[in-house]
Simulated assay, not measured.
Amino acid sequence: MLRLVDVFAGCGGMTEGFRQARVDGSDAPVFEPVMAVEHDPFAAETYALNFGDHVDVRDIRLIPDEDFEPADVVIGGPPCQGFSSLNRNREGDLRRQLWQEYARALRATGARYFVMENVRQLLASPEYATFKAEAVGEGWFIAEDVLLTADYGVPQARRRTIVIGSLKGDLALPTPTHAAPEDLFTDLPPWLTVHDAIGHLPSEPDGERWHRSRNPTDVSRLRYSHVPRNGNRFDMQRSLEAEGLHDLVPPCWRNKTTGTTDVFGRMDWERPAPTIRTEFYKPEKGRYLHPEADRPITIREGALLMGFDDEFEFPEHMSMSHVGRQIGNAVPPPLARCIAEVIAQDAVTRGLLDAGGVPVTLVR
């Protein structure tokens, strides 16, 4: 197997995709996770629960080069909040400088492949331009683009920057595995939907494996009940006012007549979910109401919509905010698997790995 190091690992969404990767129809795993770096102890605990006790719970800047495990592949997404359009004061944000630590990890591990994931804005940033120039100068071949996760078997419409690097030659980004249902010029299966992901769960949360949501007040439930199928806050406002419940429409909503159309919106059973952010269990943050039930989606539903399967574990003792943050910040595993299989096939083609997943040569 190819040795894998995950930096800025979070709860391990990208590692999970690499763990699932297979090549040439073989059932043998291709990648062996040997090290993760994650400074958040809650996310690190989740990672360890699912992958083993090889997590370094330190700020990556404090890890000396000699402490990095030798690896064939380095994966990870430097914290994206510094690049996000939601962060208005991002100039000089320390999180924007952590690409330097990512580059250091590449050198320290001796990796010959890497995968970087981040928000769409990354590609236009001066930090990425510097990283790319240095990487190309060191012999890396780079492929980059903004990918739509729904095109890769994720039941969620989320756009993310993916950068793949190889020291062995040109490497293409993965080709889509799914397509929009209205696309009549493809043989690919349609996007996975909200119903595909969470339709098997009981409508009334049973509390099992994080199938639980916030406990809304009676007033909140009444508001939720006035959001029609696929509706949003404007539909809710009209419905409440039609029944004479004007007092349940806050002045801030009444005075904001445009924008924020997803707030208090219901998900659509027949489409992928919107972007699952870190507070997806709060309907005031976006289109996070269940398609039918008068409640926000549960933590487990959010994980499934991110592409985690039912077997992935989140510690039951943690707070909802800690687990929600881990899920919202994760790389969707199905997308990561598609990327991993591109790297695995390239390793086979170049004679670095046989078709059974056995390395032909040692780590560089």
Rank of each mutant, 00 (worst) to 15 (best):
P216D: 00
R266L: 08
F83W: 10
V146I: 15
A340G: 11
K282M: 13
V34P: 10
D346Q: 14
I327G: 00
D294Q: 04
C80G: 09
C80P: 11
F314C: 05
V7F: 01
L304P: 04
N232D: 15
T175V: 09
A103T: 05
K285R: 14
T130V: 10
V163L: 07
E241S: 11
R271N: 11
R300C: 12
H317M: 01
T217G: 09
V163G: 12
L192P: 06
E208K: 15
A197E: 00
L123A: 13
P181M: 05
E38F: 07
V7D: 09
E284W: 04
N232G: 12
T278F: 09
R158E: 10
I60S: 05
G244M: 09
T349Y: 11
A157I: 06
R254M: 10
G199F: 05
S125F: 08
T186Q: 06
A355H: 06
G199R: 07
G244H: 01
T130M: 05
D309N: 14
E208Q: 11
V363Q: 09
V331Q: 00
M35Q: 15
F131I: 08
F185A: 14
L335P: 01
G153E: 08
S213T: 12
A9I: 02
T298C: 12
A124L: 00
L4A: 02
A135S: 14
H317L: 08
R22A: 02
D196E: 00
D170M: 04
A303S: 08
F314Y: 03
E301Y: 03
A336E: 01
